[in-house]
Design a binder for these strands. Structure first.
Lengths: 250, 250
DNA sequence: TAGGATATCTACTCATGAGTATGATGCATG
DNA sequence: CATGCATCATACTCATGAGTAGATATCCTA
């Protein structure tokens, strides 16, 4: 599991590293004079800075797109210079990759969270989808959904595809389970997973422009629509619930 | 209405322009010696080539992404050189813009097609969505959904945003009408439109990898899912069809 | 306090790719 | 046949931006 972006990064902000003289770990190092302690502190400091770099990159990519963002831009945002950025990451490509990981890990965590639950699959699915929506609306959301294979090395591209596939199959699995336990209507699980993920992924495209709702709120609204469906639910009983209506389209 | 990409372009292929000596309009020009006729033919020829350039660009953008595609690539694909491309378009940016227009016009046509219909709004909406899906799965689909504002001049960006907004409001309008005429269950039209468009837009992201289904087939599957909803349709009657279920999500 | 590791900067290299200047070719018209 | 226009190629310019070399400052440890 690469890179522990997540809880730690949620609390730091970009200018952590601008106030460099104020070495935060130093006092503690003095009180516990073990060199290992000091070394560990320094290492933590470095890790925090590295994460700040990645998050700053995510924000810039989000604003201007990957190709329209230069490493000088990212450095300027942190009030440092480009070589310093390269001190923490090996390439621009890796930056994008890490941003992707930062987003996708949130979604994987959502799956793990519902894994042992006894609730009906539809309820578990909804919980996952809500976290999914939050992840897409996060700093890393844009990178996660828009990271293009062509921008990454074959190895990274493969890694990302595997993670995406894992998430996709996780959703399908929940849908299958839901059909089994009766909490989800029989349907094409693959297509349903595509539709759900697509709708949620697309949040990243318009969330910047309109942040009046939180990611969770949007996801909840979507879930309600997905659950209920557009067709009115008739009060009268009906034998075959999902008869394909032959629309007279075009 | 800019650029009539569409039916005309559907029948030409890229190497139209490689067989240049075989001037197709010449014979007709001889039989009708009006200079206007000849001029018109030449103009048409030019327009065809221009559309071939745009379509070739769309295909390359689709394959490698906008920023990873050079104009030399596009030219090479047509077995011509870069200055020739510039003879037909003014800039790379304009190429992307035209590709976008090529896709979005298909969707606008779908709206016009159902405009006068008497059918229930849900039926009309479904027809539009099916065409929407086809457009997204077309050559221009990728450009249409992924054309980033940051890659275009402010003027073009504004134009594109206006067109996108028009489509969005068209969908919302159909949903509203559906709620009015009872063919669509009461819901948040804005959110529903976002969800529908998002799911369909996302087709562009995985359609290249897996073209086992046509765009229309995918759109139909999606429409079925959206209509029916994930929750099973109970045989027993129910008073409030869209009660917000308070999920015990995380 | 010397020496080494850590962290950062200034000042480069170098490839890429958008866009152009200019000339060649061919066709149509007068 | 000369002239003009349309079409296309060769061979450039030039800005941008990824990535690096090497110097410097700072702190930690011995």
């Amino acid at each position: 599991m690469p890179a522990g972006l997540g809880c730690a990064m949620a609390i730091i902000n970009a200018n952590t590293m601008t106030t460099r003289p104020r070495k935060p770990g130093r006092g503690r190092t003095r009180s516990t004079p073990s060199p290992w302690q000091a070394s560990r502190e320094r290492h933590r400091d470095r890790e925090l800075k590295r994460e700040a770099v990645i998050r700053a990159a995510a924000r810039e990519f989000n604003r201007k797109g990957y190709h329209n963002t230069s490493l000088d831009d990212i450095a300027a945002r942190l009030q440092i210079t480009k070589p310093t950025v390269y001190y923490y990451v090996t390439s621009k490509e890796q930056l994008l990759f890490q941003c992707f990981i930062g987003g996708v890990e949130q979604i994987r965590a959502a799956f793990r969270a519902v894994e042992g639950r006894r609730a009906p699959a539809r309820v578990r699915l909804n919980a996952v989808l809500r976290h999914y929506g939050e992840a897409v609306a996060s700093d890393f959301g844009w990178c996660m959904v828009r990271a293009e294979d062509q921008d990454l090395s074959p190895a990274m591209s493969r890694h990302i595809k595997a993670l995406k596939s894992e998430i996709d199959h996780g959703i399908r699995q929940l849908i299958h389970e839901g059909i089994q336990d009766g909490s989800i209507a029989p349907c094409d699980a693959k297509m349903a997973a595509f539709a759900l993920a697509g709708a949620l992924n697309w949040i990243a495209h318009w969330y910047r422009e309109n942040q009046s709702l939180t990611g969770a709120q949007i996801a909840s609204a979507f879930v309600a629509i997905f659950e209920g469906g557009l067709a009115p639910r008739p009060a009268r009983r009906r034998a075959k619930p999902r008869a394909a209506r032959g629309t007279s389209g075009a």
